[in-house]
């Protein structure tokens, strides 16, 4: 049971940190990882204002 919880926690941690990793590799918008999130989430409805 403990091993299962540890595996799930590891997956969750890695999934959450993936965007930051991608941004770091990309050079990203000013290096602010959350801006990447905002842009991704708002692109559909916010368009250019989501940057």
């Amino acid at each position: 049971m403990k091993a299962l919880v540890a595996r799930i926690a590891l997956v969750v941690l890695l999934v959450l940190t993936t965007p930051a990793m991608a941004l770091a590799a990309d050079g990203g918008p000013d290096g602010v990882w959350w801006e990447w999130f905002v842009r991704m989430i708002t692109w559909g409805s916010g368009g250019w204002h989501g940057f």
Binding site: R7, A22, A25
Partner: peptide, 13 residues
């Protein structure tokens, strides 16, 4: 999960 994460990271990049 490590491999999956790397694939996702490069895809997003």
């Amino acid at each position: 999960p490590v491999a999956l994460t790397l694939v996702l990271a490069f895809t997003l990049r």
